[in-house]
């Protein structure tokens, strides 16, 4: 402690043995250069560096905000586009369903008409055929009667009988009906 006081009192003389921090003779030098350095740093920071960094940070914040807003807008747009697409899809679907139903109905109509026509034709053909069959049947019956009559007459004559044609015919007819 005594040494320190000596240093403080004698300044540079006792510097070798004491604390350089307490060498008051050097204080003006340090304070002068410190003030110079502080002023230079202050001027550089307040005039150039800090406004610049502040501007960069503000710009970045602005850019981020803008980008977020733009992203939000694009998202909304995408959502709108999706909705429009879905709407269009739904419309197209319902239209397609309508067209399908219409086509089906038309085809059904055509089909019904064709079926009806075919049915009528078939009915006509059937009727005609039935008529022809009837005629044929009648013809056949007639032939059977004639053949039966002739055969009966022959049989009667062969058996030695004599019968007039009329009675044979009546007998055959009666038999055929039976």
């Amino acid at each position: 402690m005594a040494t320190e006081t000596t240093v403080a009192e004698h300044g540079a003389e006792a510097a070798k043995a004491g604390i350089p921090q307490l060498e008051f003779a050097h204080f003006p030098n340090q304070i002068f250069w410190l003030l110079v350095a502080l002023v230079v740093i202050y001027v550089v920071l307040s005039r150039i560096a800090l406004p610049r960094i502040g501007a960069v940070l503000a710009e970045r914040r602005g850019t981020i905000t803008n980008d977020l807003a733009a992203a939000e807008e694009l998202k909304q747009k995408a959502r709108d586009a999706e909705k429009a697409y879905n709407d269009a899809l739904a419309t197209a679907r319902s239209e397609a369903a309508k067209i399908v139903a219409e086509a089906k109905a038309e085809i059904q109509k055509d089909l019904d008409a064709a079926t009806a026509k075919a049915d009528a034709e078939i009915a006509a053909k059937t009727a005609e055929s039935e008529k022809v069959i009837g005629e044929i049947r009648a013809g056949a019956l007639q032939s059977v009667t004639e053949v039966a009559g002739a055969t009966a007459q022959e049989l009667v004559s062969v058996l030695g009988g004599n019968a007039d044609a009329a009675s044979i015919q009546a007998a055959v007819a009666a038999r055929l009906k039976g």
């Binding site: 250069w33 410190l34 350095a37 550089v44 920071l45 610049r52 960094i53």
Partner: peptide, 25 residues
């Protein structure tokens, strides 16, 4: 050492200023 004498204090204060300028400017 007068109040204006360039000393090692001056040197290292100057380097400090230079580093500040390098980083911030």
């Amino acid at each position: 050492i007068h109040w204006y004498t360039p000393t090692n204090v001056t040197l290292w204060l100057g380097l400090c200023v230079l580093v500040v300028v390098a980083l911030f400017v």
